Simulated scan of single mutants.
Amino acid sequence: MIVRRGCSEDLPRLTAHDDVRDDWIKRCIELGEYFVAEQNGELVGFLRFSRFWGKIPYMDMIRVLPSYRREGVGTALFHAWERAMIEEGVGHLMTSSEWAEAEPQAWHRRNGFKAAGSIDLRIVQPSPEIFFVKNISGIRKG
């Protein structure tokens, strides 16, 4: 498996598997806000992030194609993102999931995230959103 930053050639594959508008995907590619996982030249997963308050890397989406789940793809994507953010000198990472999603929350905790609060967004989703933060300020580069 290869994990790398997304590039313009990935646009058709990301458009097929991400649930945001094409122009947002293009924007994220241009800003280096995608990591993609490939196996035998096929997209098997991706991680898309943005910057909370324009500063804190926030994992918007991590998606692994169903036939590749539980094979370490998500963890490999997360570690590539985390290493890249450490290289940038970032102090914290953020992510979130719906309150009712026990499995994603357990994954975040296994990867070092701690719950940091929640917000009720039931006007757009069925349960509140819980936010997670990971302190990476003490992790060395390289």
Rank of each mutant, 00 (worst) to 15 (best):
1 M>L: 14
1 M>I: 13
2 I>D: 13
3 V>I: 12
4 R>E: 10
7 C>M: 13
8 S>Q: 14
8 S>A: 14
10 D>L: 00
11 L>N: 11
15 T>V: 15
17 H>A: 12
18 D>M: 07
19 D>G: 14
20 V>L: 13
24 W>A: 15
26 K>Q: 14
28 C>N: 09
32 G>D: 10
33 E>L: 10
34 Y>G: 01
35 F>Y: 09
35 F>G: 02
38 E>L: 15
42 E>I: 07
45 G>W: 06
45 G>F: 04
45 G>R: 12
45 G>P: 13
46 F>G: 01
49 F>R: 07
55 K>Q: 07
56 I>Y: 12
56 I>N: 03
56 I>T: 14
57 P>H: 02
59 M>E: 03
60 D>H: 06
60 D>Q: 06
61 M>N: 12
65 L>A: 07
66 P>A: 08
67 S>A: 12
72 G>D: 11
73 V>W: 10
74 G>T: 07
75 T>A: 05
82 E>P: 06
82 E>F: 03
83 R>S: 12
86 I>K: 02
90 V>L: 00
93 L>W: 13
93 L>N: 11
94 M>A: 15
94 M>G: 11
97 S>Y: 08
98 E>Q: 09
99 W>Y: 10
99 W>A: 08
100 A>L: 07
105 Q>V: 01
107 W>F: 15
110 R>W: 06
113 F>C: 06
113 F>E: 00
114 K>T: 10
114 K>M: 04
115 A>T: 11
116 A>F: 00
117 G>N: 09
119 I>K: 06
120 D>Q: 08
120 D>Y: 05
122 R>W: 03
127 S>H: 08
128 P>M: 07
130 I>S: 05
133 V>Q: 06
135 N>D: 15
138 G>R: 11
140 R>V: 00
141 K>H: 04
